[in-house]
């Protein structure tokens, strides 16, 4: 596959006021293939934004280099930037200008002019379905509309690589669906490479051809979702809510004795009662949650339920297959939103 983005030993070190270094990104090397949707996931402070800022030429790497379509972002920044479109998480538009005026302005920043600029503006306006509101000021738009103009501005230069930073943040489900469909269209109809960041696992799962997970300034995993789950050996989880048993230990022993259950977790929520005099007392809840880890959850479900029903009443059952959340949790020890 042809490489669209290649980072080689990309490193960024910031200096604190006391001259001690902060290694935000530590020699990151990875490739993004042309025409794929690549999601970069990582908790806050992991180095995700710094890495992307270096790739898009916003900040200078301390060491290493990134190549966009073969152009070095350090040595051939102008050519490299010509291939990049950016859709920031913030609405990076001038609210006092109309949608069309904003597009004109940002188009000029890519040296577009005259008929060519007008044609590109019409193109992205139609693509993002903005015809009716193109002459309205941005500050009169809804959140979803602003997001669409924000994306349109990133497409003006017909980029080969488009970086989209949480483009669905704060939009309603209808506009979110429209934006996700747009991402697919950019890949499928325009053969663009999409570099995508999100906090929503289900979005990353739905969109991504490949996923990179970054933590503490390093890429700790990279591949398709199947490759990642396989890599961590993630299992299915049977999550069963039950009335709290009188003899917890007997139930747990019975479950753990099953040869296909690799691990059993038991959790009881505790309620805190606060009396009128301001004192408090902690009392256990009536419900408890059992989590059974196994290789084939659906197959094992009947047997597990049989064991539990002999001792306690079941409230609900859920079979959870391994997902990115589990991968992320496994690799970083944190949830994505932490």
């Amino acid at each position: 596959m042809e490489t669209m983005v290649e980072t080689k030993g990309l490193r960024k070190t910031f200096m604190r006021k006391d001259s001690t270094p902060i290694h935000a990104v530590k020699a990151v090397s990875f490739s993004i293939y042309r025409g794929e949707i690549f999601s970069l996931l990582g908790p806050n402070g992991a180095g995700k934004t710094t890495t992307i800022s270096m790739i898009s030429g916003l900040i200078e790497p301390s060491e290493g280099d990134a190549f966009i379509g073969g152009y070095s972002i350090r040595q051939q920044a102008r050519q490299a930037k010509q291939l990049i479109g950016v859709v920031p998480q913030e609405i990076a538009l001038y609210p006092e200008l109309t949608a069309r005026q904003n597009l004109w302005f940002f188009g000029r920043m890519y040296s577009l002019r005259g008929k060519e600029l007008k044609m590109r503006m019409d193109e992205v306006i139609e693509f993002m379905d903005l015809e009716e509101r193109q002459h309205d000021r941005i500050d009169t738009f809804s959140g979803g509309m602003k997001r669409r103009v924000n994306i349109a501005a990133g497409l003006l230069n017909r980029p080969q690589l488009i970086y989209m930073d949480e483009p669905t943040a704060g939009v309603d489900p209808q506009n979110r669906r429209r934006i996700l469909d747009t991402v697919f269209r950019l890949r499928d109809e325009y053969q663009m490479t999409v570099l995508y960041t999100t906090h929503l696992m289900e979005e990353a799962e739905e969109l991504s051809d490949r996923i990179g997970i970054i933590d503490h300034g390093e890429i700790i995993a990279l591949g398709t979702q199947a490759e990642l789950t396989e890599r961590i050996g993630a299992e299915d989880r049977l999550v069963i809510e039950v009335k709290r048993p009188s003899d917890e230990q007997t139930l747990l022993d019975a479950l753990r004795a099953h040869p296909q259950a690799s691990k059993v977790e038991y959790q009881v929520d505790h309620l805190k009662d606060i009396d009128r005099r301001g004192g408090s007392a902690v009392t256990p809840a009536e419900e408890a949650v059992l989590t059974v880890y196994c290789q084939n959850g659906r197959k094992l479900l009947a047997e597990v339920l049989n064991i539990i029903e002999q001792q306690v009443e079941i409230s609900s059952i859920e079979v959870r297959q391994p997902d990115l959340e589990a991968v992320f949790l496994n690799l970083t020890g944190r949830a994505l939103r932490d």
């Binding site: 800022s53 898009s56 030429g57 916003l58 920044a77 102008r78 930037k81 010509q82 990049i84 950016v86 920031p88 998480q89 913030e90 609405i91 990076a92 538009l93 001038y94 940002f106 920043m109 890519y110 040296s111 501005a153 990133g154 230069n157």
Partner: peptide, 14 residues
């Protein structure tokens, strides 16, 4: 800078 317009400008060939 706060609205990322500056970043968008800087990521263009400007």
């Amino acid at each position: 800078r706060n609205t990322w317009v500056l970043q968008r400008l800087l990521s263009s060939p400007t």
